[in-house]
Amino acid sequence: MSVQLTKGESAEMYIKAIGELTLEEALVPISTLASRLGISPVSATEMVHRIVEQGLVEHERYKGVRLTETGKRRAMLVLRRHRLWERFLTDKLKLPWEDVHDLACRLEHAVGTEVIDALVDFLDEPSSCPHGNPIPNSEGEFEYSDGVQLNTLRQGDEGVILRIHPESRDVLSFLAQKRIKPGAALSVIDVDDFDGLLTISINGVDQIIGQRIASHIVVAA
């Protein structure tokens, strides 16, 4: 069951990743992009050059990349398909929460707009993916609701998990194992001042998690 990606598909993958990593106007460093995609910085640079030629991104030397207007639109539409597929896979096919991200990564490039429109109808126009991230509308517009990263909370703070962002297989399976999912209420019991480990109480159990994984968890405080 190997799926070989075509050139166009991997370009979509790149712009989607850049889109996810972009915070407003900031440039995304290529090294960040590479580690997000789990590839070496060399191959990332190479690919970036190719999609620059396609007019999807702008590259500022030594600083990073940013999506062009076309690129941004394309990226948001891929994101829309991706998150819709995730919904479908969890809600309808009952596949595991932590697996659907990777599966959707492969489905997102596959089909045309008719299928996606049908999917939207079938799913009853969902507003967010199973990991809590908003689904862009057909114009490619969406907004993240206000929230803060869990690692910025202090001892005694409480909140509800809004979303997991950015998503990746490793992060999701780690969180699934600890049963940390959007919608759950949590409170910070302790933040270790030596190594920054957070002890949180969630679903009635204490969990200890590191700063890095905590930065993937966005909570409404």
């Binding site: 580690s35 910085p41 490793d170 780690f174 480990l197 200890i208 998690i209 590191g210 890095r212």
Partner: peptide
């Protein structure tokens, strides 16, 4: 011993 975070593979490892 507990796993409290993801293993990070940075440029150094690469």
């Amino acid at each position: 011993l507990r796993q409290t975070d993801l293993g990070f593979r940075g440029t150094g490892v690469w």
